[in-house]
């Protein structure tokens, strides 16, 4: 079986990680930010797999399984926060979080400050 050179795998992981990072920074939609975080997580997971196959060890795959479960938990919490935020401010704009939630009794004021 022809194997892919591990450098290429690591390069792919690095590129994916950078794409995800840039996405987190540039995207304003919270949902897209969460997606980009997933991309970054998977880039890290890919690096584990590549490393594991390079050294012939199962540890990389173990870590990847761990990472998947962790990512699931993270998404659950992240989506819950996102829904809460949307429920309060009727927007998914990350920049709307700026100086928000000053007083829970007056969520309308938050939108105005934007």
């Amino acid at each position: 079986m022809a194997s892919i050179p591990y450098e290429l795998g690591l390069l792919l992981a690095g590129v994916l990680f950078a794409i995800g990072g840039v996405g987190v920074i540039t995207r304003r939609n919270l949902l897209m930010i969460l997606l980009c975080v997933e991309v970054m997580l998977n880039a890290a997971g890919l690096a584990f797999i590549v490393g594991g196959s390079r050294w012939g060890q199962a540890d990389g795959q173990v870590m990847f399984i761990f990472l998947i479960s962790m990512a699931a938990a993270e998404v659950a919490v992240g989506l819950a926060l996102l829904l809460l935020h949307f429920g309060r401010s009727r927007t998914l704009d990350a920049d709307a979080l700026k100086a928000s939630e000053r007083s829970p009794s007056a969520p309308e004021a938050v939108g105005d400050e934007r």
Partner: peptide
């Protein structure tokens, strides 16, 4: 400045 994305950057 309170912008999450700025902090992430």
């Amino acid at each position: 400045n309170g912008r999450v994305r700025w902090y992430a950057a």
